[in-house]
Amino acid sequence: MKTAGWFAWSVTAVVVVGLVVPLVVVVASSFNPTNELLVPPRGFSLTWYGNIFQRSVFLTSFRFSLLLALGATACSLVMGLLCAVAVVRCRFPGRDLLGAVLMSPLIVPQVVLGMSLLIFLSTIGVVSSLAGLSLLHVILALPYTARVLIAALTRFPVSLEDAAVIHGAHRAKAFTLVTLPAIKPGLVTAALFAFVTSFDNFTSSQFLVWDRTTLPIEIYSYIRTENDPTVAAISTLLILATVAIVVVAERLVGLETVTG
């Protein structure tokens, strides 16, 4: 393909500015010594970073979100892997239907999903529970892990696993010794999707939280009520963490599996 023309390059520049400037502004504002959200900042101070640790809600909700995301990642990864093995390796009635149902949580609007789960949980009498919130996060993450792992397993040549079996490995051992290492990029990407989907989720989670809330929900309500640069400081830390994770993932497995 020929190189893109000046028009494409100019539009790209506009988009890059539109995507980068807000992030830069957040980072810059977080170092403001005053209560204002100003760019350029009036000086340099770490007050607002200190404030994160003063406000215990941010720390507790961060820890809660982290645990929730780790749990949801582990569950959805295992379920997604098992489903992928069944869908790719087995022929059974309803295989195509399963594939479609696995993806269906993706097309339901987040508010609708959150509210539906609330209605369901209150009908069976389980509200305000970790179980309900965890269930929601597994439902949210499962389509991503299943999709990524089905793709990875489809590309994996079964003859490799057969080779391990014929040379003396039990089928289960062949799977862990040969298949799992070979689909590592898929596993990493799937875990990344699952973790981020859970950790960042706001819209449907807000229906199911009780006195324990997640970090995005704390941040959202803080923005709508107090709105001082503490949020900018938290955002800066989370953006840096995201950048670090993405760079590591790029080194580890490349980003092809994310961009498609």
């Binding site: 040379h167 040969v178 070979a182």
Partner: peptide, 18 residues
């Protein structure tokens, strides 16, 4: 089972563990 048949096999695509 296959893994106890003591068979050596060379696959068409070699199937070397990458």
């Amino acid at each position: 089972p296959s893994h106890r048949r003591n068979i050596g096999m060379v696959f068409q695509d070699y199937a070397l563990f990458p």
